[in-house]
Design a protein around this nucleic acid. Structure first.
Lengths: 223, 223
DNA sequence: GGCTCCGCCAGATGTCCTTTCCAGCGGATC
DNA sequence: GATCCGCTGGAAAGGACATCTGGCGGAGCC
């Protein structure tokens, strides 16, 4: 399956040229001229990589927005406007994975895209199947042995996170950061409350055990 | 916990300078002048990032070697010898995650290191295998010859610390500081008590000896 | 505007871990 | 071999943490 690249570049000419080249190299390419368009496509098309020109867009992608559901962790490469190292540092500090200055060599950009995809491959499976549990990201549905389980938005995010690496123990800090996007918030019972509710909802059979607490650390998903 | 950076750079001066700067910025730094040293350290110290100058080393890291156990997926940044884009592409195509040309701005290298650690945090196969003992950090599971051993949070931290360098003797001060975060607290029996309990739990076969006391100093993992 | 659902927030309760204490053992030193 | 000091490992007290319930407020829907 070809990887999808979202090219968020205001300049028509650059966008088209880049799109053609990337298509020639086997990528699915989505173009976006404006920020709103880019966010829209990030949500609906779930690209494997985003190339973008505006740092502001990078921040918005990383911070997320209530009600919107793009992958806040999506790999990002910034097409900087200059060749100034200071601008490259700024891009990286704002959450970009990589950055190339202009003018850039297409071959290098391509190599960097490939390297980033290689690094992140498999981290955002569309459908996670782990034992009796099936988590379908695109449709946001969850099944336990073919029994549908209805989860709210946050509940789904939590389950998807835990199921993305079954058996891995996620610390409460990691879960709060990745699911809630908190900066530091430590002393509420929100996470525990959701974990409890999700656990109950996933218990279809009496002895199902999916969401398991790891004392003093966090939670993990079994099977 | 600070991230560990392995600097594999033949030139003494560059290696030392880079090491000092990175240490100032809060990293644990390991230096290696030769390829064999670098591979050795990649296996024993399990760095979070490797900076290297020779593409050959990058290939060796990625390919692995029978009997050796470094993480073939370890994040790699290449310090290219020139500023030639062709060399950058070559590095990326050989498995590097990122590459900076020379001369490079330290600030940019630092930003790239941070970006790469951010991206790979938690995904690196952080599994310590030493003899009959397997310590899996992501899942927080411990096995002795395929027999699972169930440890509490503090117990696991202690085992992971000891196993991170199996033959090294850790002083009680080091263990208290790194596992418990104490400043100096000298007169409790907490550490000894945990060591005792962990030792018993790890003794699957009658003559297993994993947590070994070193009289008047501290503990180590193996004999 | 009323209704419903969702997300967030404590409080009471129960569970499990952590720490401490102590008696006994065993190296280390001379 | 005698003595000292540190290590061992059981048991028990205390504390830290997790769970679940119920309530509050806001957003979206009718």
């Amino acid at each position: 399956m070809p990887s999808a690249v979202l090219v968020a570049e205001p300049q028509l000419e650059t966008r088209e040229l880049l799109g053609r080249q990337l298509r020639d190299d086997g990528f699915d390419v989505l173009g976006a001229a404006r920020r709103s368009e880019a966010l829209e496509l990030a949500e609906s098309a779930r690209p494997d990589v985003v190339l973008l020109a505006e740092l502001e867009l990078c921040l918005r992608l990383r911070e997320g927005e209530p009600g919107r559901n793009w992958d806040r962790n999506v790999p990002v490469i910034v097409l900087a406007s200059t060749s100034d190292p200071v601008e490259r540092v700024r891009a990286l500090d704002r959450g970009a994975d990589d950055v190339v200055g202009r003018p850039f060599a297409y071959d290098e950009l391509l190599a960097r895209i490939r390297a980033l995809i290689r690094r992140t491959a498999g981290s955002s499976e569309d459908v996670i199947v782990s034992g009796d549990l099936v988590v379908d990201r695109p449709t946001r549905r969850v099944h336990v042995r073919d029994t549908p389980v209805f989860l709210s938005a946050k509940e789904f995010e939590l389950v998807a996170k835990l199921a993305s690496q079954p058996h891995r123990v996620w610390t409460k800090e990691e879960l709060l950061r990745d699911v809630w996007g908190f900066r530091a918030l430590g002393r509420t019972r929100t996470l525990e409350s959701h974990a409890s509710r999700v656990r109950k909802k996933l218990c279809v059979a009496p002895d199902d055990r999916f969401v398991v607490n790891v004392w003093g650390v966090g939670y993990r998903m079994l099977e």
